[in-house]
């Protein structure tokens, strides 16, 4: 980091009649800029990784929350990257591995319930489980950036 060297000091005593010169020199600018440039890349990488981790954790939690009978909905639940820092977790019974069960979309009924079945909230619970961890990691990152 730049260092402040602004210590007034007497110079040239005995040569120019004892004049006083003061000044400021900040050293380490190129190194600091290089460090910030590197930090920018690291932060971008970490944010991307954080989004991926959160989505994959959410996928895993959602799969754990499914009361699986045929495994169709479980295999139709997956995380997908949609942008540099954006992932989404998709759950669709139409995309499951069980062809017999792929004719009808019932993921929403499992999540939200029907007139005869209480909601399971398997996706919502996964989100609620993962969100505090993401917030905690973001706070740690923010603290590290502030400390730079």
């Amino acid at each position: 980091m730049p260092r402040f060297l602004g210590v007034p000091k007497q110079v040239g005593r005995g040569i120019t009649g004892g004049g006083v010169r003061s000044g400021i020199q900040i050293v380490g600018i190129p190194e600091a800029i290089a460090k910030l440039t590197t930090a920018d890349k690291v932060i971008r990488l970490e944010l991307g990784q954080l989004a991926a981790d959160a989505a994959l954790n959410m996928e895993r939690e959602a799969k754990n929350n499914i009361n699986s009978i045929t495994g169709n909905l479980e295999s139709g639940t997956y995380a997908q990257k949609v942008g540099s820092y954006t992932w989404e977790v998709i759950s669709s019974s139409l995309e499951g591995d069980n062809p017999e069960k792929n004719g009808k979309q019932y993921a929403g009924f499992v999540e939200n319930g029907t007139s005869n079945m209480a909601p399971r909230y398997y996706m919502r619970r996964a989100y609620n489980d993962v969100q505090p961890l993401v917030n905690a990691r973001l706070r740690v990152m923010a603290a590290r950036i502030s400390a730079l």
Partner: peptide
């Protein structure tokens, strides 16, 4: 009307 609690941390 049906009310359901959403489990949360």
């Amino acid at each position: 009307v049906v009310i359901n609690h959403i489990p949360m941390i």
